[in-house]
């Protein structure tokens, strides 16, 4: 993919005015990170300031003003939104990984003493992995010595739970055996909350910026085009001379 493709991110009026020149500047240059950042920032800037590409309209004549301007613009906004979603996805992935890594892994002996001391609310054993939910809500992982046939780890931990439940039936430890990668609902929920907590503000901010930009540009353009149509009509009816019309038009498009 060449960098020229990224020009699609720019609003149509910008591409009409500067597209060819920027494409010539890019040539067949390959995408580099700095180039991508430069063009994305440039495109966002162009969407926020569509009036800067104004002079092209004067140069291109009124004909292009009434052309179908909405579709390509919306299309490039969709492209930008897609890019944003991709960035957010990676952000989310990062947050998710950070969250799962935050669960500390403790030695098996520590897990056993926690169970014996009655500090553990539930134990989930999945293959060689044990997930302990403590009474205060914290989650710990422990690695069991080997796969199931080995009685050492698997049996000792579940035996310790059974032993504890016999001694202290008032605060029993729940023991479950799970499939290989089953997440317990509590951990899943807290992970989702963490991910949403990271994503939501960013998402809201980005949406706000995009919506504001499109409203501002559409509003001001529509107003200008309406005024243009009005003065064009005045010229057609002979109220304005051609010179006056040109002057007014230039004023409007500045």
């Amino acid at each position: 993919m060449t960098a020229t493709r990224l020009l699609a991110l720019y609003p149509r009026s910008w591409r009409l005015r500067y597209g060819e020149e920027i494409a010539a500047l890019l040539g067949e240059e390959r995408l580099s990170l700095s180039l991508v950042v430069d063009l994305i920032l440039g495109a966002i800037d162009a969407h926020l300031h569509p009036e800067l590409a104004g002079p092209v309209l004067a140069a291109a004549g009124v004909g292009t003003l009434t052309g179908p301007q909405g579709r390509p613009r919306r299309w490039s906004l969709v492209l930008m939104a897609t890019l944003v979603v991709v960035f957010l996805f990676y952000g989310g992935l990062y947050a998710y990984r950070a969250q799962t890594q935050a669960t500390p892994t403790v030695p098996l002996s520590q897990a056993l003493s926690d169970v014996q001391a009655g500090r553990v609310k539930s134990v989930l054993i999945e293959g060689t992995r044990a997930t302990l939910t403590l009474a205060d809500g914290t989650i710990r992982r422990a690695t069991l010595p080997d796969r199931e046939p080995d009685p050492l780890g698997h049996a000792t931990l579940s035996e310790a739970v059974t032993a504890h439940n016999n001694v202290d039936p008032v605060h029993p430890t729940e023991l479950r055996f799970g499939g290989s990668e089953v997440l317990n609902p509590g951990a899943l929920a807290s992970m989702l909350v963490a991910v949403l907590g990271v994503l939501l503000p960013v998402l809201v901010l980005v949406t706000l910026i995009l919506v504001t930009a499109s409203i501002i540009s559409r509003g001001s353009r529509h107003r200008r085009y309406e005024s243009l149509a009005r003065i064009a009509d005045l010229r057609d009816r002979g109220v304005l001379t051609d010179d006056e019309f040109q002057r007014e038009k230039r004023k409007l498009l500045e």
Binding site: R17, E21, D38, L39, D45, A46, A59, E254
Partner: peptide, 29 residues
């Protein structure tokens, strides 16, 4: 200057009428 920042600045300078493009010569204006 990357093309994005270069033309962002060119557009502003043109709008401010500090610079102007000569006869339309396509990509090498």
């Amino acid at each position: 200057l990357g093309p994005g920042s270069l033309y962002g600045a060119i557009a502003r300078l043109e709008t401010a009428r500090y610079i102007e493009s000569l006869a339309d010569e396509g990509p090498r204006r």
